[in-house]
Design a binder for these strands. Structure first.
Lengths: 160, 160
DNA sequence: TTCGCCTTCATACTTTAGGGTGATTTTCAA
DNA sequence: TTGAAAATCACCCTAAAGTATGAAGGCGAA
């Protein structure tokens, strides 16, 4: 879509130029006829050469000029930053609470439910409840799957 | 806003061209008058026209061609390669066998021992044995820890 | 204040994971 | 060919994980 616009614009200019030249030549002819001083053959000759070589110049320029490129270096954040940044949108979308995220985080670090319970100063049963809710929200059956998906979705940071 | 700019630019070019052409024609006229008597002058005259109008064509083409913007996404590899390449040295150092690595891989994908057994066409007990050896070599107690360490050491690819 | 959500905890039960031991077969290199 | 490592499997047992259900207290928004 962009190329066509470009092409049109270019063509328009070229056409305008061609018309302009034609008019000029007619004018010259007319002038020539009016003041018959000069040999008109040389005028036509010169005009033809002018037209042809202008065309040649345009063609050369378009053909040989590498397309002007404006290099825009777009930092690809996706791999680096997105990996390190936690995806809050997904957390909100999946309706995961703060506590559940904490548990998920510790889970991903390889802690057992008992260890997580001790770390968070709650009972083992509480952790189990959090787990069950987490697994439901993440639609998984095991903690290993939960970790896998959580890392993929960016709910928790990757282990680097 | 874009059309007006475009129109202006175009007009400017046309006007400039018109002026240029007018000057050139005057110059030609003058040259013609000067060297009308010389026979060889016609060649020089034609050559000059050719050169000048070729230049004009080139100038026109360059002027009117819009620079094409090419978006080049530059990847930031630095961190990625390390992450994606599996660290064979570590695998060798830890003396982890092919089968154990397979089990470790499937384990990291969230599969249960039973599922891994079915996937590899062996019994559940076999997987348990592999696990026990793996945990010993990785010096961990749980599969979640094994996954964590294995990813850190690059024994298995990260989940991106 | 009432309602909904989060967090907490409990009990009971099932399933899965993991530890320990021993054994057989396979594979591969010395 | 022979020995070591790898891979396989079994049995038994314990620990941990996961399921289901119920319930109570806190806390913020309507």
């Amino acid at each position: 879509m962009r190329g066509s616009t470009n092409f049109l614009t270019k063509n328009k200019s070229v056409i305008l130029y061609g018309l302009f030249l034609a008019i000029m030549l007619c004018l010259l002819k007319w002038l020539e006829l009016r003041f018959i001083v000069i040999n008109h053959a040389i005028e036509i000759y010169a005009g033809a050469i002018a037209v042809i070589f202008t065309g040649l110049g345009i063609w050369l320029a378009l053909k040989l000029t590498k397309p002007k490129t404006i290099l825009i270096e777009k930092e690809v954040l996706s791999e680096k930053l997105e990996t390190f940044l936690i995806n809050e949108k997904e957390i909100i979308r999946l309706n995961i609470s703060k506590r559940e995220l904490e548990v998920l985080q510790l889970m991903s670090e390889g802690l057992s439910n008992q260890e997580i319970a001790e770390r968070l100063f709650v009972s083992l049963n509480t952790i189990k409840t959090h787990n069950a809710r987490l697994f439901a929200k993440l639609e998984v059956k095991r903690r290993t799957q939960a970790i896998e998906i959580a890392k993929k979705l960016g709910l928790i940071p990757q282990s680097h």
